[in-house]
């Protein structure tokens, strides 16, 4: 079960990174700030997923990273919502 959960979080991290890369490419081509904000959001979500793997699988006995995990998710979503509000009109 551990390995499956591992795979799930890594897949999530990979998906987020892929989105971030695609959005960054879009941003360099079009210079629409919305793409930059959402790119940062997906970078944050990737970090969030990687932290999850580290926290729960790699060093389960290590320091509790829960707050950092929540913070990374919060910052990601905040950046995305800011971008959506600021630059989608």
């Amino acid at each position: 079960m551990m390995t499956m959960a591992d795979a799930v979080f890594l897949l999530c991290a990979a998906t987020s990174l892929a989105c971030a890369v695609l959005l960054l490419r879009g941003y360099t081509q079009n210079r629409v700030p919305l793409l930059l904000w959402s790119c940062l959001c997906f970078v944050g979500l990737a970090v969030n997923n990687i932290l999850l793997v580290v926290d729960l699988m790699v060093i389960p006995k290590g320091p509790d990273l829960t707050t950092f995990r929540h913070l990374s998710a919060l910052v990601s979503l905040a950046l995305l919502v800011f971008g959506l509000i600021w630059d989608s009109e």
Binding site: L22, L23, G26, N30, L34, L35, S38, D87, S88, E89
Partner: peptide
């Protein structure tokens, strides 16, 4: 048009 910004968002995901 604002819709263009939204379109570029979707188009960014075209490989």
């Amino acid at each position: 048009k604002p819709v263009d910004k939204i379109r570029t968002f979707a188009d960014a995901f075209r490989l």
